[in-house]
């Protein structure tokens, strides 16, 4: 049923740290790999090796530039996958019941056998988290790696989403955001975790940690400066006299003119 559960026992989701993400796209690749080989229809590509490649991805990394009033601009890498919204508009619009939100853990999933591929759920998602697979004709979205996190055949360390497991910068965290004592909830509290597009009223479970204010601006960074002070100050004595004498020769140029 596409009625949303009034509440869910747990709110499993991701916390994405925009301060530490280095924009390497490793999570994009590991997500694509895991979800092509496992749950549901594979994520297809068209013209993968040609001039106009395009394909289905459940997680994509954008890059944004922030220009503050003062100081240098800052680049922020911005991974985006389904935010497993509490008030998921993608679920309620679905005519077939293929889209649903689980009452036990809040994960939003698509039952691909019931999906008619009408695309309306993707229209209803403000974040671009759903993509209709061009080859399979069914809606694909992040499953929060539901086939890993409960998978007892995997070593315990791997029972987290593929993107979380892969991220070399530790920028993606997985946990229960409904439990205020969980690691992820505490991280959100400590770092001022935020919702994307709060005005859309979707109440996303996933949170984003804003980039920390940069302390290491260019002017502070110059740790070698003291050692690089000009060695030759104004010369005195014989060398000073020679310098000036050479300057006065026809054709010689002064330091000012040269600089």
């Amino acid at each position: 049923m596409t009625d949303l559960p009034a509440s869910t026992d747990r709110k499993l989701g991701l916390v994405i740290d925009l301060d530490t993400c280095v924009g390497c796209h490793a999570c994009v690749i590991s997500c694509k790999g895991w979800n092509t080989e496992n749950y549901g229809a594979p994520l297809s590509d068209a013209d993968a090796y040609g001039g106009d490649p395009s394909g289905t991805f459940l997680n994509r990394v954008h890059s944004y530039e922030i220009t503050p009033e003062e100081g240098p601009a800052q680049l922020v890498h911005f991974p985006k996958s389904c935010l497993h919204c509490e008030d998921a508009p993608c679920v309620t619009v679905c005519p077939t019941g293929a889209s649903y939100k689980r009452s036990e853990d809040g994960i939003v999933l698509v039952n691909e056998d019931a999906c008619i591929g009408c695309g309306l759920c993707a229209w209803a998602c403000p974040y671009g988290a759903r993509e209709l697979d061009a080859l399979e004709g069914v809606m694909k979205k992040c499953t929060l790696c539901v086939d890993r996190i409960y998978n007892n055949t995997l070593p315990e360390i791997d029972r987290v989403p593929s993107c979380v497991r892969t991220c070399p910068a530790g920028a993606r965290h997985f946990g229960d955001l409904g439990d205020p004592d969980s690691d992820v909830s505490q991280l959100v509290a400590a770092r001022g975790g935020m919702d994307l597009m709060p005005e859309q009223g979707t109440k996303p479970v996933n949170k984003y940690l804003p980039p920390r204010p940069k302390q290491d601006r260019a002017e502070d960074l110059d740790s070698l400066a003291p050692y690089l002070a000009p060695v030759a100050e104004d010369q005195s004595g014989f060398l000073g006299w020679l310098d000036k004498a050479l300057d006065r020769l026809p054709g010689a140029r002064s330091d000012e003119e040269m600089s």
Partner: peptide, 28 residues
């Protein structure tokens, strides 16, 4: 509001996720 990055300054899309097009761009 989409990125939550408005507080430190003006936000500009710097680089899209992929060089090619995708379903979202085609559809929306």
């Amino acid at each position: 509001s989409a990125t939550g990055l408005g507080a430190p300054g003006r936000v500009r899309a710097f680089e899209p996720p992929h060089t090619g097009t995708n379903y979202l761009l085609r559809e929306f």
